[in-house]
Design a binder for these strands. Structure first.
Length: 491
RNA sequence: UGGUCUGUAGCUGAGUGGUAAAGCGUCCGGCUGUUAACCGGAAGAUCGUAGGUUCAAUCCCUACCAGACCAGCCA
């Protein structure tokens, strides 16, 4: 973006205005491109950003650490006392002030950086009105404190790094699917399907809550509601993605999903982002491969493109942050059938709170044992008992398991859940009957099995959990800009 | 939703049944091509809210509110 601003010079402007006019003709450069470039000593450049720290030297100069969010590192600006606003403004700069700076690139005499900016003009764009109570002082804060100031926390090292890595992962995912011939499909956020089987849903309504229309039985009359029937926020784009998969062959959705579960954990959000690929003519093994490939691709891209932020995570948040990603890239994921996983758990010496036997759903402690203790890397568990899985998962020939798979990551648990879908109408109907799901609600979904059905499979990747895993941030509320959790929808 | 724990200056964080350290930040001064600099000084806290026990509570008890972590639900 070109931020160049020209001011009309009227007659003979005072000195200050003339300076500004001169400065405004220089194009603004992002700090990351400045720091990456070399051999530009003496060049005049302009940066815009926010003050992180100011250190004064009575030798007659001040050091300003200026961030603009384009990279982890700030640029050091040297402001000398001959600047016209040195005592009046430069020496009053505090953390958080917004500035527009024109200066010359020069090699740094100090040790922390190779180049710095010798300021010719420091223009203060926005002051911090009460530095004493500015919540993002450049000192240590608890993650809890940052959460309570979600609108200001992107100015901190940690939240800024998370935001850049999150962006990097999102782009890497799009890039991966694009390169592999997938079409990005926008599935709806509003839905009437209340039987997607993925948890409690948020109701959407335009009815007057103070005066609800009632039918003859006294129940709420949803025919009077906006859509003429009950409606909700989606818990998954999968069913809609399947429809497009059975035409475009390879599709994925990537959007927000909503669960009204009263979950208070470090890995659940009421509003979270999910990536859901769906592949036609594919089986369970195919999408297990796909899951492993996409995770590996993401790790490669992040290590390559956000080395600065990852170095910070490794230093301050989680020592394993970088080596974990390298492991993901280098080693094959473990793959194991549910039945064999049960056997491992039954035969190990670990004492579990929840007893292990064939047919149970794996609890956190079981998943953690498999991923963190037994395999020490991501594990893909496949072919779960039908009793603990959703109606749309394909029945295996054994009649007691379905072609489902979960990817369990050390430290996070389930990061991906997927399945080969039931493409045979009779089998699908059987399962829907067993689980008391009215066919009428999903006629359109059943149609997909009546007209040109094919084996197909897909999975859901918890995007925020992936960000959490990649960065080593232990609480998912710190990897999404404005987390929505029970009792928390400020900002 | 259940279990455990927490709530003390702007932030971080000690502590005591007789009204409370310190560090950082802020403000003032000193020093310095500084690196989340350093030195000196100052301001800044009715110790989450409401009851109760007590001569006296921030500290003990109860309730409530808020938050954290663990578990369940899942991604």
């Amino acid at each position: 973006m070109d931020c160049t601003i020209f001011r009309q010079a009227d007659k003979t402007p005072p000195l200050g205005l003339a300076r500004n006019r001169l400065k405004m003709t220089v194009k603004v450069e992002p700090i990351d491109s400045l720091l990456k470039s070399s051999g530009r000593e003496g060049e005049e450049v302009r940066v815009q950003g926010w003050i992180r720290t100011r250190r004064d030297s009575k030798a007659g100069l001040s050091f300003l650490a200026v961030h603009d969010g384009s990279c982890f590192d700030p640029i050091q600006v040297v402001a000398e006392n001959h600047l016209h606003n040195y005592p009046s403004e430069v020496q009053r700069l505090t953390t958080g002030c917004a500035v527009d700076i024109l200066g010359t690139i020069k090699p740094s005499q100090g040790k922390g950086q190779s180049i710095e900016l010798l300021a010719a003009e420091v223009q203060v764009i926005g002051w911090v009105e009460d530095p004493d109570t500015y919540p993002m002082s450049p000192k240590r804060h608890t993650m809890e404190h940052l959460r309570e100031h979600a609108h200001l926390r992107p100015r901190t090292n940690v939240s800024g790094a998370v935001a850049r890595v999150r962006n990097c992962i999102a782009l890497a995912i799009h890039q991966f699917f694009h390169q592999n011939g997938f079409n990005y499909v926008h599935t709806p956020i509003l839905t009437a399907s209340d039987c997607e089987g993925a948890g409690e849903m948020f109701r959407v309504s335009s009815l007057d809550m103070e005066n609800l229309p009632r039918n003859e039985q006294g129940a709420i009359d949803y025919s009077k509601d906006f859509f003429g029937e009950e409606s909700f926020l989606t818990v998954s784009g999968q069913l809609n993605a399947e429809a497009y998969c059975l035409a475009l062959s390879r599709v994925y959705t990537f959007g927000p999903t909503f669960r009204a579960e009263n979950s208070n954990t470090t890995r659940h959000l009421a509003e979270f982002w999910m990536v859901e690929p769906e592949v036609a003519f594919a089986d369970l093994a195919d999408i297990a491969d796909l899951a492993e490939q996409v995770l590996k691709h993401v790790c490669k891209v992040v290590l390559n493109e956000r080395a600065d932020d990852m170095a910070f995570f490794a230093q301050r948040i989680d020592k394993e942050a970088i080596s974990r990603l390298e492991n993901i890239i280098e080693k094959d994921f473990a793959r194991i059938n549910y039945s064999d996983a049960i056997e491992i758990l039954e035969n190990c010496k670990e004492k579990f709170e929840f007893p292990v036997s064939w047919g149970i759903d794996l609890a956190s402690e079981h998943e953690r044992y498999l991923a963190e203790v037994h395999f020490k890397k991501p594990v893909i568990v496949m072919n779960y008992p039908k009793g603990i899985k959703a109606f749309y998962m394909r029945m295996n020939d054994d009649g007691r398991t379905v072609a489902a798979m979960d990817v369990l990551a050390p430290g996070i648990g389930e990061i991906i859940g997927g399945a080969q879908r039931e493409e045979r109408l009779e089998k699908l109907d059987e399962r829907m009957d067993e689980m008391n799901i009215p066919r009428a609600h999903l006629d359109w979904y059943r149609d997909l099995r009546r007209y040109g059905t094919v084996p197909h499979a897909g999975f859901g990747l918890g995007f925020d959990r992936l960000v959490s895993y990649v960065t080593g941030m232990s609480n998912i509320r710190d990897v999404i800009p404005f987390p929505r959790t029970p009792k928390n929808i400020s900002f």
